[in-house]
Design a protein around this nucleic acid. Structure first.
Lengths: 158, 158
DNA sequence: TACCTACATTTGTATATACAAATGTTAATT
DNA sequence: AATTAACATTTGTATATACAAATGTAGGTA
């Protein structure tokens, strides 16, 4: 089990500061993992962002969710939840209606078709995730999560 | 210094498997760090991908690099290095010419203007990177890098 | 030479992302 | 009631990303 240093893969000068190495490692690892997950989703013609929205809606157990809530809960915020949801509506995986109480808001619900679709794909994603994390022990996992949390601590504040 | 769990931020069920938690942590942290770096680059009207290409070219010390090499060395591979480089050419930060030996290849070089530009922006990025990593000790950094390497180990293979 | 295969880049198309501005709605203030 | 400010979503525009197909080039082989 040979861990490959990013400096070698990208032919970067090995003498870069540790801070830069950390950042590049996170950005590069994101690309690798995102690629692996996208390869799972590809045959189902759905993007990882669309998949993420479906999971958020399922998590609400039928309760309608408005656009802002969806955006807050997305792993990677993107500025067009409207168009993302529209794509899901075209596929009949999701439906929307204006909130009866506050007509500025729109309610989004996953459809039965969406739930079925999600069940199929979800199992494959779970398997891939377990596979990706398979080389990491429980203690290592907790430490990794802790250290990533430390990175976000500062980066988060604009 | 309070580390915030991702499950709380995204209102995810706390009982998700550790493998999923790891993956979500990496993907989410990427978004936060990428956002922080983009805010630094924004005033200079350059994307992080374009900035990455400039740094790769500077690293070659004037030696021309062809498109394929640039793509190999990019932190996040994207399928259109052609158009990315074209944007940099429009800004006079980069120039290209066909390779005299192998006319299939094109040579790309950073211009003097590109070098000056990069020097200005680079210092700010370095500072931001140090800031983001400031809560992490040297030992923690090495462990973080090692664990991310473990994740890539499996994810990398299609 | 003509043909084939591999290589390197470019082009086309669809979708995603970032961000500013516009629209429509609500609640508060005068 | 009219005005204003805040809120929630939509629309517009530019660029980025993913991926397939097309173009152009080189080297080998019949």
């Amino acid at each position: 089990m040979l861990i490959v240093r990013i400096e070698e893969v990208l032919k970067i000068d090995s003498k870069i500061p540790l801070s830069k190495s950390i950042i590049i490692n996170v950005l590069y690892t994101y690309g690798i993992i995102n690629g692996a997950l996208n390869r799972v989703l590809k045959p189902f013609d759905i993007s990882s962002q669309q998949f993420n929205v479906l999971r958020i809606l399922r998590g609400q157990q039928g309760k309608p969710v408005n656009l802002g809530m969806v955006q807050d809960r997305m792993i990677n915020k993107m500025s067009n939840t409207t168009r993302l949801v529209d794509k899901l509506i075209e596929k009949n995986l999701v439906e929307k209606s204006t909130d009866t109480v506050n007509r500025r808001k729109i309610d989004i619900r996953i459809t039965t078709e969406g739930l079925d679709f999600l069940n199929d794909v979800d199992a494959l994603i779970d398997t891939k995730e377990v596979e990706i994390a398979s080389q990491i022990t429980k203690d290592e996992a907790l430490e990794l999560i802790r250290l990533l949390g430390k990175l976000r601590l500062i980066a988060h504040t604009p």
